[in-house]
Each structure stands twice: as structure tokens, then as C-alpha cells.
Design a binder for these strands. Structure first.
Lengths: 291, 291
DNA sequence: GACAAAATCGTTCAAATCGTTCATTTTAAT
DNA sequence: ATTAAAATGAACGATTTGAACGATTTTGTC
């Protein structure tokens, strides 16, 4: 788990000579820092980004502190989902990390990883819970693990540009499911946005204040549970009315069934993160037509 | 807080061997003073200057910047708390990271950082919220930031030994404050335990299952809020009765006022993480007397 | 103040890394 | 197929790093 890494470690992990690695560093392909004595040190996040961009395989992942066999196997999304599910239920963070980083290195978009693997795994956990096959603590522990992995992925993403569009969002009061809004933030960051999740259980009054203070280009509301439907709809309408044309208000979440949506106005309703990504890309391109 | 730092502290904090650090001192890269006996002492200001100038991008880029700590003024815990508070309210993760890693550089124990700075900052945020000075979303966003920083700190800790004692814990149903249980897990990991937080809002039924399945040496329950007092006490008593002698059951949290505690049995009640750390150390030493 | 444990001293040494050069292999274009 | 350009891997002496060692200092406790 050492970070930053030495050139020798990385060279052996990737399976190339130290000479090549040094050249890549000097050409700026891998972000490099120097010790006071002039030796190179390579932050893990930069190495992973390089591997991903250049479609390199990891010969010896364990050297980087990653689980053995990360970055060499062929993963179908369904196999990944299976493995992740087992890891989450067992509380095995190592297994989960391997699955996620494998997918990341295989150049899957963050949105795809979240949609097809993480979200699906938790949907399955929910089903298993209904059947009494998994305990609540296993689901909660899985959420903790997933949150960590999302954060680790964020560390591997480049920092957003200073002029990148901003986005904020969260879940409304009565919805404690913070994982979903965390995934939204990460997916938007993957697109280059300066996205910040405000967390979960946020009353509409404070959501209004957040939008008013933050002036984002996009605001998302992830709704996995609704306490009082009428109140929710009314307060949401107020928020939409107040900010709608200036701020793109995007909603999503399994609690927004069709009959609920029919009583809502929104800039976009997104079933999943790929929909959201498409919309965000479109929005950014349209409002910033020249760049 | 001790201002002149020992080489060991600094070496550990910036991730370099003591040998190299000593050489850098002798080469004049880091201003060094000597004790009467010849031991090196490194003023914090000089160390920070060295990090900014020579190690521009080594290890933790977030250490550089240091808006307020660069001055020769004492970087007291209360000043750190102040800065962290402002960063949390403003949602500025960079500032918060600087504060925390400054402290990590200057202090050994994570328990102290959590107790004196993070927990205190959130207590202050709670007060400000009562006065209507901060919005709920600022508190929630602060929690998100703090969670990330705890996770980053954990990444800096060595992995627990294979034979390390295990501990699990969480917050009961009705208590959504997951930050506290996350801090407990981190403090125990700092002591070398294999600690896992199960998260928040856990019904007692599933807590029992978790203890039964995990067989930890220590179980903690962090209680920041109690929904139904009678039910809480009764279910807690059941859990204690079932596992008490084999598993050390530790409780804490601001919801456990004195009158509540008087109706509870526990291996230890901990006001803060330093109490918990003492107890955990004692427990480990007693049950593993030879090693 | 005396004592024991822990930390630090200065030093030495093997391993790793530096920058550089050069021969070989791979890639791309003619 | 031939050739030029580019990338790779291996080698070199000089320097840096991390770990070890016994001797000394600091720290905590009685």
C-alpha cells in the first residue's frame, strides 16, 4: 500500500524496463515527483491513469499494493458484478477493489462501472435482503466499502480544470442512501465537471440555500426514498420554479416512479449515470459552444 | 503541542527514511537545532518551508500552500480547529486537508486529531446551526469532506497485521451520524487493530448477527441519537447479555447522557477516542499477555 | 535522584537510482 | 523490400537511499 512508488516497483509491476519507465516519466506521460536527492517517485494515481490511457497490462499488480491479478484478466460486466456482489456481502474490501480497478483499467467509463456493476450489485443485495439471505449489516458494510472505492477512484481522476462547470446535488430528506449521490458526483468528475455531493437527508430549504449560494450549472437530486409524497412534490416544485432556467435540474432514483414523475418538471430525468453523462456533456457543449 | 519535532516524526509524516531525513538536515536543506546532547530538533516552520520549496510535489501535494501555518506563530490545536471549521463550512476540501495533514505531521495520535479538532469542529458547527449561522447542507457537506479525509488518513496507515485483534462497530437505528463510527474505526486501526465500521442506522437484530458472525474481540456502539429510549435500552441489554464476557462491548456518543448510562452495562464507556484508545490498548495487552 | 526503556546519535554498507550512451528491436513510410 | 525514425533494453560510473550497528541521549517511572 506504499504511495508514492519507486521506478523499480512500477517497472516490474508493468513488466517493462526501468529505462523505458524513466523516459515515460521524463516525457510527462506519468506524473513524477522528485526526492530532495533527485530520485523519482511516482504517485499511484498517476500510474493508474497512465495504464488506463495506454491500455497497458499489469504483470505484477501486487507490487503496487493492488490485489494480485488486477489488470490482467478479461472481465465481462456480469462476471465483475458477480464477484463484486460476493465481495460486498463478505465484507472483503480487497476483492471489491480488485474488481473495480480491473474495470477502470479496462477503460470502462466510471458511469458504466457504477451503472452496470455497483448499482446492480446493490440492487441484487436488496433482493437478497428481501429473501432474508443477507443481513442489514452486510448491506451497510457494503455501502461503506463502496464509498471508499468511489473515493479511491476519484483520487485516480485528474483534478478538474479551474474553468470547469460546477455541479452540486444530494438526496432529499428521508432518503439516507448516500451512495447514489456519491456515484453521480464521481461520474460528473469523470467528465471533467467540478461536482460536489452534499450528502444525504437534505431538507429542501437547505437545498435551495445550497443552490443559491453555489450557483451551479447543474443540480442533481437523487431520490431513492420519499417520505411524504405530497410535501416532496410541492417543495420540489418550489425549488424548480425558483432556479429552473438558470440551473439545469436533473432528477433520478428508483423512488421516482412514472406516476411521481408525471407530477414533476425537470431538465432531465435519468434512469442511470450514462443518461446523466450524456445530458451533462450535451449541456456543457451547448452552453459553452466555442470553448 | 510540541513545536520542535523529532526526526522520526517528520520522517514518518513525509514518508521517507530517517537516514535520508538526517542527511537532508546535515546538508542544510532543513533548518535544524540541536539539544544539549546533540539530538536534532526540527522547528515545524522550517519543515514546512522545506516541504514547500524542495519537495514541491513529493508525497502529499496538499501539504503545500499552508496559508496560516507558515508564520512562526504557534500552530495550536485551537487554531487548527478554527481553520478546519472554516474549511468545512466553506466546503473547501483543500484547506481541510492541509489542516489535517499538518496535524498528522506534528502529532502522532489520530485519536487526538479526531477528538480535539474534527469532533470539536463539528460540535461548533452544531452550535452555529442552532444559531442559524450555518445551513444544514454545509454540515452535511462537511461530513462528506471529513469522511474522505479519514479515509485518506487510513491509506497512510500501515495495513494491520494478520494476527491483529479484530473490532467492529457502528451506530444504532435512528442514528445517522456515521462520521463518529468512522473515527472510531480509524483510531483503532492506528493502534494496529483490524477495525471495521459497519456504518450507521443498524438495527440491533443485525448488530447481533454481525457480532455472532464476526466474533470480534471488541465491539463499539457509537450513539449520537436515540429514537426510542426504552426500546434502545432493552435491545442493548439483550446484546450485552448475549456476548458480554467474550466480546468487550464499548459504548460512547453524546446521546449517552449520565441518566441513560446508569441503566446500561458495558465494558467501557468512552467520552472520546483517547479514552477508547487507552481501553483498547489495555484490553489487547491483558488478553495477549506474552504476545 | 536512580533506573530502565525508548529514541537518537554517527557511521557503515548493500541496494537502488541517477543521467547518459549505445546497440537492438519495432514502427512507419516509401 | 528498403530505409528512416522512434522506441526499447542494457550497460556504465556517480550519487542517493534505506537499513543496520553499537554508543549515547532522552524520557518516563519509581
Amino acid at each position: 500500500m506504499k504511495n508514492p512508488l519507486t521506478p523499480k516497483q512500477v517497472a516490474r509491476a508493468i513488466g517493462v524496463s526501468e529505462s523505458s519507465l524513466k523516459r515515460w516519466c521524463d516525457r510527462g506521460l506519468i506524473p513524477t515527483v522528485r526526492t530532495a536527492g533527485g530520485h523519482r517517485r511516482l504517485p499511484l494515481a498517476g500510474v493508474l491513469r497512465f495504464l488506463r490511457e495506454n491500455e497497458h497490462r499489469l504483470e505484477r499488480p501486487e507490487i503496487l499494493g493492488l490485489p494480485a491479478s488486477t489488470g490482467q484478466g478479461e472481465w465481462t460486466l456480469s462476471r465483475a458484478r458477480e464477484h463484486l456482489l460476493r465481495g460486498l456481502v463478505a465484507g472483503d474490501e480487497t476483492v471489491c477493489r480488485q474488481v473495480i480497478f480491473d474495470l477502470y483499467l479496462a477503460e470502462q467509463s466510471i458511469a458504466t462501472i457504477c451503472d452496470e456493476v455497483i448499482a446492480e450489485a446493490f440492487r441484487e443485495i436488496g433482493d437478497q435482503w428481501d429473501c432474508g439471505n443477507v443481513e442489514i449489516y452486510q448491506e451497510r458494510r457494503g455501502c461503506e466499502i463502496a464509498s471508499r472505492l468511489l473515493f479511491e477512484l476519484q483520487l485516480a481522476l485528474p483534478a478538474p480544470a479551474a474553468d470547469a462547470p460546477t455541479a452540486i446535488g444530494g438526496t432529499p430528506e428521508g432518503d439516507p442512501y448516500s451512495l447514489s449521490t456519491g456515484m453521480v458526483a464521481l461520474a460528473l468528475r469523470d467528465l471533467g465537471w467540478r461536482a460536489t455531493s452534499l450528502g444525504s437527508m437534505l431538507p429542501f430549504s437547505t437545498l435551495k440555500a445550497a443552490v443559491a449560494n453555489g450557483r451551479p450549472k447543474l443540480f442533481w437530486l437523487s431520490v431513492s426514498a420519499i417520505d411524504h409524497r405530497e410535501q416532496f412534490l410541492q417543495q420540489y416544485e418550489e425549488l424548480f420554479e425558483e432556479f429552473s432556467p438558470q440551473v439545469a435540474i436533473v432528477v433520478g432514483g428508483r423512488a421516482l416512479t412514472e406516476d411521481v414523475r408525471q407530477q414533476m418538471r425537470y431538465a432531465a430525468y435519468c434512469d442511470n449515470l450514462r443518461h446523466l453523462s450524456s445530458f451533462a456533456t450535451l449541456l456543457h457543449a451547448q452552453t459553452e459552444p466555442i470553448g
